[in-house]
C-alpha cells in the first residue's frame, strides 16, 4: 500500500464517520493528510494546501480534501 492508498483510506474514514482516533471533524472542514496522518485542519482548501506544502513540497505526496460525502453527480 503506497502513501496515496493510505491517505485514501484515512480520508474515507473521516468523510464517512466524521472522526479519526477520537478527533471529530465537521462537515466542510478542509483536511490535509501526509503519510496517513492529519497534519492540518483548515477552513478552506487554500489554507490546507499551504499547510501541507509547508511540511512537504513534493507535489505527489499528501492529500487535501473537504470533509463530506465522497460522491459526485454529473448529469
Amino acid at each position: 500500500m503506497n502513501e496515496n492508498d493510505i491517505n485514501q483510506r484515512v480520508a474515507e474514514q473521516i468523510c464517512t464517520g466524521f472522526g479519526l482516533n477520537g478527533h471529530q471533524f465537521r462537515l466542510g472542514e478542509c483536511v490535509a493528510l501526509l503519510d496517513g496522518k492529519v497534519v492540518a485542519v483548515e477552513e478552506d482548501l487554500s489554507a490546507a494546501v499551504l499547510a501541507l506544502r509547508a511540511l512537504d513540497s513534493n507535489p505527489n505526496r499528501g492529500m487535501v480534501f473537504q470533509v463530506g460525502p465522497l460522491v459526485d453527480f454529473i448529469r
Binding site: 487535501v64 454529473i74 448529469r75
Partner: peptide, 15 residues
C-alpha cells in the same frame, strides 16, 4: 497542471 492529490470519489451520471 500543478495538482495535489485528493481522495477518489464515486461518481454517478454521465461519468
Amino acid at each position: 497542471l500543478a495538482t495535489i492529490p485528493a481522495p477518489a470519489s464515486h461518481a454517478y451520471g454521465a461519468i
